[in-house]
């Protein structure tokens, strides 16, 4: 009974993660500019990773494997937002007129990024 509960919960988590990641893929193809695409991918993949690996942890049970999966989550949560941040910074640097592609609330902010680097 408990096994079935664990299996169902794990499957539910993984399905949720699948939904979230499919949303990210849809965003990748729907948006036009690089920055909008980063917005879709970077926000979504942390949650997707958490749900997918959380489901795997539940399915694997408490063992060394699940500890390793927790470490994988920690590593990806540390590194993936940073890489998205750097990609976004590069995209802003290389885009001549970011205000034409998206709403820029604070023009000075854009200018700052363009001046640095």
């Amino acid at each position: 009974m408990l096994d079935w509960l664990r299996f169902g919960l794990g499957t539910l988590l993984m399905l949720g993660g699948l939904f979230v990641l499919v949303t990210a893929v849809l965003g990748q193809f729907r948006f036009r500019s690089a920055l909008n695409r980063i917005h879709a991918a970077a926000l979504v993949d942390t949650l997707g990773i958490l749900l997918m690996l959380g489901g795997l942890i539940l399915l694997a049970g408490w063992s060394v494997v699940s500890l390793k999966l927790v470490l994988v989550i920690a590593f990806l949560w540390l590194t993936s937002p940073v890489s998205s941040h750097l990609l976004g910074k590069l995209a802003v640097t290389l885009t001549d007129h970011p205000e034409r592609e998206m709403q820029v609330d604070d023009p000075s902010l854009t200018r700052d990024v363009k001046e640095g680097d």
Binding site: R32, S33, H97, R100, E101, M102, Q103
Partner: peptide, 15 residues
């Protein structure tokens, strides 16, 4: 809305 404004802005001459 976002896409439409983006398209308009893309067609508009550069500031």
């Amino acid at each position: 809305v976002l896409d439409r404004s983006m398209a308009e802005a893309l067609e508009a001459p550069a500031p």
